[in-house]
Amino acid sequence: MRALFHSEWERLWKRKIAWLFLIAIPLIIALTAKYYIGHNASVPLGSPEHTTAENFPVMAMIEQLIVVFNVVALVLLTFSFTEEYRSGQLRLVMLRAYGSSQIFWAKWLAFASMMALFFVVYLFAAVVAGYVFFESSPQQTLFYYDQPVSNGHMIGYTLGYYGMAYASIVGTAAVFIAIGVISRSSTAAIGLGMGFLLCSLGYPLIYEMFNRVTGGGWPAMLKYLSLTEIQFSGIAVMLSGSAAARGWHAGLWIMLILAGYIAVFTAAARLVFTKSDRFI
């Protein structure tokens, strides 16, 4: 199993796109910093949108999580699950005495480790860029917090935010894997994956309209059935300290939704991956 994981890991890094993204991280951070420097001019100091050296890592993650990280996950998974299988490269791995379930988990693990590495590099780059480009502040104002928090608390908050962002990427990845396993060609996999992202982005609008038309009264947490909505505001709600937000039990709900996505789609993908015929 170790050797299999190693081989999957090397095949992911064989792709130029993986290296390209790793190199692009400082560039993305720099562009994000440039955007927030301009944004700071129009936002007062006490607002949670005002970027300081301490909260820049979280702000940079909010800005890039939905588009950049989801699309990179989609591309890597399509290469790993659809392209390798449908083009027949995977036959050389299947020749060896590994079960298809082992191949599936090795692929999953290689992807998860690679994403973890990207998150760690992104965090370090953002911390450095935060102190280079922004002014330090003794207290931080956060979204969904009643009072400003100390810088010590901010470190824990940043780590929690990155952890949850990573969990949400594992959630979208579960859907992308399921799509990648059933798709017959890589363009179909990419298209369906992007379609899933667009529908997830559109779902909160439809939910709000539905709520308005039927006279309201639907639980607010139903909005977070969409993974991109969790990435957009759900993580901040989940980590919030205000009493109003705590009353919703947001953390529990969002955890359950994420766990549901991961369990259902990973199980379905594994089932299809191991049961479909391998004589391609």
């Binding site: 699309v71 290469f79 890589s186 990419i190």
Partner: peptide
């Protein structure tokens, strides 16, 4: 080179 990269290239 490949369809996936082309898609990413278009985005």
């Amino acid at each position: 080179p490949s369809p996936i990269i082309c898609y990413l290239g278009w985005i």
